[in-house]
Design a protein around this nucleic acid. Structure first.
Lengths: 194, 194
DNA sequence: GTCTATATTCCGATAGAC
DNA sequence: GTCTATCGGAATATAGAC
């Protein structure tokens, strides 16, 4: 059985993702984790520290999957497609991670944003700039890399609008159509010389 | 002098955008608007109705600017660029609107999302599908239209990461670089025949 | 219309038993 | 480690004077 601290962190991550930090009380977390609220203060100094530890725990576990992707498949196939597919799958299949990421982008203070940039975005961003540079473009690859990340994050954020506007929806369990759509925008932008 | 109800709605919009609905109390809104909390209940039944009215008031005023853009400039220039510039300026210059939009995409229930799709997104979405179709593409224009909106919204959301990753930042008061970057991604995708 | 005053519930956090 | 019990404060909302 997993230890109590991890149980609390996983429970808190789920609740915070659904409703936000302010809307979830210590009592809510404790009840969902099957303990009393007072016991949370044995494991965490206060609510702020529990939030920070929850984010650190979740983000550290999720970014680890990028290392696997990079190390085990570094030699094969289409690097751009592999990167996009990894990021889309990560955000589409893990709604807790995706929603906490959005909450941090909206409400994180300077320190939390710096952590986020370092823990989550730095390696994908660097990887993408390398992919862009490898295409032989001479201009600064960084705006294009940030746009790629923005496109993927934006696609996930507007997903609930899909059925209301376009009349259909990407299947969360099948990220392929979204990957295809994103690649259809990135590839032409990449091959444009500027 | 503007009437009390509008003063409350504008004040609430600003505070809700900054910190979220749950974090802002009726006392906070009342204090910022220069009145007591009890008086808010003369103008609104409860907090929920104040939130809904705040969103309806803000979104109705902002989408009105699209009508101006469409009606006064329908004949000139580059329709795509005009549309992108309008949407980027709207989101970049009006941080209250942009943040409340993001909050609704994250936390809006089905009814609020339907209102959002209708009040804000339907006309830009339709406009963009028409622009795409006018380019002579034969495939469904809707995924591309949604991607364009996703790209613009995503760019605004990742703005705070810019100085942390790319080492510089778009100037909020000068949306041109972001418009240029977004057009650099949309134009090639548009001219690809599929 | 706006106020003072208050009812009720819930919050974060602590003390201390086991 | 986890509990019961409780404190002080802040939340939404209402009653009623002006």
């Amino acid at each position: 059985m997993t230890d109590t601290r991890s149980l609390i962190l996983d429970t808190a991550a789920r609740l915070f993702a659904e409703q936000g930090y302010v809307a979830i009380s210590m009592r809510d977390v404790a009840r969902a984790a099957g303990m009393t609220q007072a016991n949370l203060y044995y494991h965490f100094r206060d609510k702020d520290q529990m939030i920070n530890d929850t984010l650190a725990h979740l983000f550290a576990s999720r970014i680890a999957s990028l290392d696997e992707v990079l190390e085990t498949h570094l030699a094969d196939g289409d690097e751009l497609e592999r990167f996009v597919r990894w990021m889309v799958k990560l955000l589409a299949e893990d709604i807790v991670f995706a929603r906490l990421l959005h909450r941090e982008l909206l409400d994180g203070d300077a320190g939390r944003l710096a952590n986020l940039a370092q823990a989550i975005f730095l390696r994908p961003f660097t990887l993408f700039t390398e992919i862009v540079s490898a295409q032989g473009r001479r201009s600064d690859p960084r705006p294009l890399a940030l746009s790629a990340i923005a496109l993927i994050i934006g696609q996930i954020l507007v997903l609930p609008l899909m059925p209301l506007l376009a009349g259909n929806a990407y299947d969360v369990n099948n990220p392929d159509p979204m990957v295809t759509q994103i690649l259809a925008m990135l590839r032409p932008a990449l091959s444009e010389q500027s």
